[in-house]
């Protein structure tokens, strides 16, 4: 694989809180993610997986260290620049879906396009295409309350990929789903990785899910313990 990682972390630390209650969640992460890779992040609870994902997703900032995205320093960007980075290059899928309530699937999926300033027609076409990709075309006018957990997560994935991001970050995307739905989601992510060329980073606790990945990163106590090439590699 080309040694030109899309994401590169060096000595990234994260400290929560201050003074006596300060807690170091990340103790110096070094990690390279190659373009087009499908990475599973594993590790015990509290090992810093989510913290790392949030930093990679530009939802949070590291306390120290460098974060290169496509060779550019991210840790020095300001809030608005990070927002634009999220808008342009990143898609994030949460364990808890985080869809807007009382808002239809299509409107949820269209939301990132709205912020990108796309017109109504483009929004509709791209939104429907994304919903089609996750197999929910016929459910476009349902609100989250009218969808199952698996369907909600697929809407969330559609929202994350509707902008054709370079990187899709998913923090325990199957954590709230039964194994059958989980496999569907994994197949969807695999498809997006293979056929749409999206780099996928996914946190999971389950070996079955990690088996879909090409690379498996093991976290322990705020450090990367080891990196394995997975079964799918």
């Amino acid at each position: 694989m080309a040694d030109n990682p899309i994401i590169s972390l060096r000595g990234v630390t994260k400290v929560y809180g201050e003074g006596a209650t300060a807690f170091q969640a990340l103790k110096g992460i070094d990690l390279d993610i190659q373009q087009g890779d499908f990475v599973a992040v594993m590790g015990p609870s509290g090992s810093g997986k989510s913290t790392t994902m949030n930093i990679l997703g530009c939802l949070d900032v590291p306390s120290a260290g460098t974060f290169l995205f496509k060779g550019h320093h991210v840790e020095t960007l300001d809030r608005d620049q990070r927002a634009l980075l999220r808008r342009r290059y990143l898609g994030f899928v949460f364990q808890g879906f985080n869809l807007l309530s009382r808002t239809t699937a299509l409107e949820n999926v269209e939301l990132p396009l709205l912020y990108r300033g796309e017109d109504k027609k483009t929004r509709y076409d791209m939104g429907m295409a994304a919903l089609d990709k996750v197999g929910l075309k016929d459910w476009w006018d349902h609100t989250p309350a009218e969808l199952s957990g698996g369907q909600q997560q697929r809407v969330a994935i559609a929202r994350a990929i509707v902008t054709s991001p370079d990187v899709l970050l998913a923090d325990e995307p199957t954590g709230n789903l039964d194994s059958e739905r989980s496999v569907e989601i994994m197949e969807l992510l695999t498809d997006l990785n293979r056929n749409s060329g999206i780099t996928v980073l996914m946190v999971t606790h389950e070996g079955d899910m990690a088996a879909f990945a090409r690379t498996i990163v093991h976290f322990k106590d705020g450090l990367v313990e080891r990196v394995d090439q997975g079964v799918a590699a």
Binding site: D80, A83, Y115
Partner: peptide, 15 residues
């Protein structure tokens, strides 16, 4: 939380 979602999917605080 809604504000968080909007920010997470790429809205600038100003928007």
């Amino acid at each position: 939380r809604e504000i968080g979602i909007r920010l997470a999917i790429g809205a600038v605080a100003r928007e």
